[in-house]
Design a protein around this nucleic acid. Structure first.
Lengths: 228, 228
DNA sequence: ATGCTGTAAACTGTCAACAGTTTGAGTTTC
DNA sequence: GAAACTCAAACTGTTGACAGTTTACAGCAT
């Protein structure tokens, strides 16, 4: 049963939620690959729990769109098509644009300073060639945007979309140039927010996600599905 | 075990999905009221299944934000605060605006004709004082908007938000005047789509949801949380 | 060799039972 | 009379077992 420390957690969290988090981790880190079948018995044995909590957890992940259940055939890590990845990206852009517009209409000096600080940290990470550092701060930047926008629901939807988008992302290593481009867009977003122009901020936010998708496709060596 | 007809369904659908659909229905129709506790045993007995499928179904509904699980205390039909209802409404507006913009950029004559037909049907329902008929066609109109926009993900997010919003809606009977106002906005949306102006369509779509919220609050006799 | 068929293993869907927690009524104590 | 305590009933969380389906493989026919 896991270890002693975990047992205390079991008291306040259900096994289901623990399993759910673990399987989510396995999927997001790629240890469980898209298309792969998830064997309930093996998973249960590995996590030292019975199949009940495992099945419940998988049902939750199904609604979160991370896995897909086929009747009498088990559940599979979801595979997303290019088309679906584009749709997800579009929705991320929509919500990001919303958040940016919100911040342009109402944000505190402290919030703007915090965003500026993250952008500077990203710039330093790019210079240092620290892709991992950039990646983490980029996440923090987008998290901050959603937090400050003040719509909890928007943030949760955004988070869910980001998790789902990991299903389509094979490798997320970007070139220094890509990172620099991306960070320039971060600055553009912050500028628009500072100007207090919601419409410009919205466009900057949406554009950032669109450009991110293009950079990603470029990195894969694919011809972009969108023009340009 | 239900009846013979149902058994055939069981073959292709899991009991879990059947339970999930039934509980969802109970919640959306108000038979299970927000805040109400859902007793697993009673529910299982009532549906003639064991607790396993019931628990799985509830876990799915939890992720869909229709119920809330408290550890060792069971699951409750979710209650949403006014604040949360506003957030949901905002997201509905955002997605509706997106869909309208999309249609302004690209829609077929047939699609526009279909929307026009639904608007006319709503107008007739209003004249006839047929609130139920209006309600259904209104749903159909918004469904059509999302369908035609061509982003499946957007439609699903929208549908989830609509379901969730039912948790906050006690009664959805509107006055003839409200319905007329609402339908005028439908026409405004269609006009903007016909003009081919995405930005105008987006604003019309967003505005429709915002106005809908205001009409709802007015109907409750509350002071609107938003200005105006 | 290749394709088909039948059978056994593996696995999912479902159920019933057990263990631990919460709840509430009844009792006791101050 | 009110608060605290006790204990049993009710309920949730979890488990192990059973039933039916799917899958894979061996054997057989072509």
């Amino acid at each position: 049963m896991l270890d002693t420390q975990s047992i205390d957690i079991v008291r306040t969290q259900s096994l289901t939620s623990l399993v759910q988090r673990e399987v989510e981790r396995l999927i997001l880190t790629g240890e469980l690959a898209p298309g792969e079948r998830i064997n309930e018995q093996h998973l249960a044995a590995r996590l030292r729990v019975s199949r009940g909590p495992v099945r419940e957890a998988l049902r939750g992940l199904e609604k979160a769109r991370l896995v897909e259940a086929r009747v009498n055939r088990g559940v599979y890590v979801r595979e997303i098509s290019v088309e679906q990845a584009l749709e997800i990206s579009e929705m991320r852009g929509l919500i990001t644009g919303f958040a940016c517009a919100r911040l342009a209409a109402a944000s505190t000096a402290e919030q703007r300073a915090q965003l500026a600080q993250l952008i500077d940290a990203m710039a330093r990470a790019i210079e240092a060639g620290d892709a991992q550092g950039y990646y983490e701060r980029n996440l923090a930047f987008h998290d901050a945007l959603m937090d400050y926008a003040g719509n909890q629901r928007a943030k949760e939807m955004y988070d869910a979309l980001v998790k789902e988008s990991h299903l389509g992302r094979r490798k997320s290593l970007f070139s220094q140039r890509s990172m620099a481009e991306s960070n320039a867009e971060h600055r553009a977003i912050l500028d628009a927010i500072r100007t207090g122009d919601p419409e410009a901020a919205r466009i900057a936010g949406e554009q950032h996600i669109v450009s991110g998708r293009r950079r990603f496709l470029d990195a894969l060596g694919l011809v972009s599905a969108t023009r340009g």
